[in-house]
Amino acid sequence: MEISMEFSPHRVAAMVRRYWYLLRSSWPRILDLIYWPMVQMLMWGFLQTYIQQNAGFFVQAGGVFIGSVLLWDILFRGQLGFSISFLEEMYARNLGNIMMSPLRPAEFILSLIIMSLIRLAIGMIPVTLLAIWFFGFNLWGLGLALGAFFANLMLTSWAIGILVAGLLLRNGLGAETLAWTFMFLLLPLCCVYYPVSVLPVWLQWIAWALPPTYVFEGMRELLIHHTFRADLMLQALALNAVLFSAGCVAFGLLLGSARRHGTLLQTGE
């Protein structure tokens, strides 16, 4: 298969514009971006407030729960923002137009990455501000550490988003459920709400193979011990490089398989 190296920011901008037109034309879509992160943040925030009043440890570990919720939402919503933009093409029966256009797969992926950032910003910025107002938890106060957490979580979310997009191309909308649920497989394994040491030893090996585990451990270190563990972030970055590359390779292979099996023409169930 010939791989074209000619990359056009103009085509990427065209795709971002297409998704932006869609987003701004539909208030339920915008509301949906904020709704669940806000519900999650409020529920876990109030739970944490209750526990803080009844357990000494959590007084010390102020913000761990709500920080976990917000970082988990960055991971989950990042992937969802990517996957939903892709799904919109399938719902609209527009994938044939896109695949037949000069748009390169890399440009398509980059436009989906940009849209995941835009969707995340629309959803998460108001929610992080609400967290300050309701619970006095300032995610932005994590400073540079937040940048490291964010970068690693987004890389994981895109890697999984790319893999899911490939599966959707190959299997049609029958694989849609994966877009909504794939990330929940990681929820218990990457130790969002508890330390890795809670897991059985054999499961700890799996947990440490997942980049988000390092982010959530790093966040607990920061909030509980006030220590930024750069080593954890670098290990997460290395794992993310592998995961992202694997996602891109899988996408290419699944796209090739879709061309062989004719599933680009039949993107229904």
Binding site: Y21, A92, G96, N97
Partner: peptide
């Protein structure tokens, strides 16, 4: 057998 995004205007 293919459509264009329904919420976008023709011009968009």
């Amino acid at each position: 057998y293919v459509d264009m995004p329904m919420r976008l205007t023709v011009r968009q």
